[in-house]
């Protein structure tokens, strides 16, 4: 009887796993499947699961549209934005967590910048970068329209509040007594920060970096409005397959699959740190 119940429970468990996995993963699965389909097999009804796979959509995306150019732009913009966000976010979060700068008012003010929808500020951003790009500083820092600097500044502005709020809880969980002990051992305030606090907050910083990178990588609205050709990102690159002649679904799926791949690999590598980091900030004794 025990064995029968066990088999039933096991079957139910794996059945549920495959059902839920299928439900959530199906859009990604369909995207990958479409990317391998020949043109004639994409928009047929009923949809085909059995077909002769081909790489012609990838060839179209990579060679004809030069999709690697968009990947390169996205990589530059995302990595630089993430680095800036993590550095400034960590320092700001530490000061909020340890010295309670502004009695919580500044922290709330920082969050308030996330309360407005991005579309509300897109026009002022467009006008600012258009004019700043014409100045000497703007030119030297590539801050004009269709330049990497403009998107980097925008992404830093929009991701910094999130990073600070996420990191504050991580720093608050590190016992002050550890820092006091390090100070008694003769370390300066900066050395304490560098040798004690930041290494302990590393899982939290890793989580923040991963989330920021994902946000930057997948952002569409600002990239679409602030770039034309030279600094376009992958999301804008995928949109470029929506032509006047029609939507090229095969290359769209191939481009989407290519753009998902780097983030997927990165997240899988960082998975262990992410899980540790997420539980680290959440539990309080």
């Amino acid at each position: 009887m025990q064995r029968k119940t066990s088999v039933f429970v096991e079957t139910l468990r794996y059945g549920t796993i495959f059902l839920v996995l299928g439900f959530f993963v199906f859009p990604i699965f369909w995207m990958v499947l479409t990317s391998f389909k020949p043109e004639g097999a994409i928009m047929v009804s009923p949809p085909r699961f059995l077909f002769t796979p081909t790489l012609e959509n990838y060839a179209h995306a990579l060679h004809d549209k030069n999709f690697l150019f968009y990947i390169k732009n996205t990589l530059i913009i995302s990595v630089v934005s993430t680095a800036i966000v993590v550095v400034f976010g960590s320092l700001a979060a530490y000061s909020f967590a340890r010295y309670n700068v502004g009695d919580g008012h500044i922290l709330f003010f920082i969050l308030s910048t996330k309360m407005m929808p991005a579309i509300a500020v897109i026009l002022p951003y467009f006008l600012i970068f258009r004019d700043v790009g014409k100045t000497a500083i703007g030119k030297s820092l590539h801050l004009g329209l269709d330049q990497h600097g403009a998107l980097i500044v925008t992404y830093v502005m929009f991701n910094l509040p999130f990073a600070i709020w996420l990191l504050v809880s991580f720093f608050q969980d590190i016992p002050r007594s550890l820092e006091h002990s390090a100070r008694l051992d003769g370390l300066s305030r900066i050395q304490v920060l560098r040798k004690v606090t930041f290494p302990l907050a590393a899982p939290g910083i890793a989580v923040t970096a991963v989330f920021t990178l994902i946000f930057c990588w997948n952002e569409f609205l600002f990239a679409y409005i602030l770039t034309r050709k030279m600094a376009s990102t992958v999301t804008v690159g995928v949109e470029s397959f929506f032509t006047l002649q029609g939507i090229l679904w095969g290359p769209v799926a191939a481009a989407a699959t290519i753009s998902v791949a780097p983030m997927l690999i990165f997240v899988l590598i960082m998975q262990r740190y992410m899980v540790r980091g997420l539980t680290f900030g959440a539990v309080r004794g």
């Binding site: 796993i17 993963v25 699965f29």
Partner: peptide, 12 residues
């Protein structure tokens, strides 16, 4: 369940 999800996704 989470281990099954993780293994299933990686299998895919």
């Amino acid at each position: 369940f989470s281990q099954g999800w993780d293994a299933g996704f990686k299998s895919l």
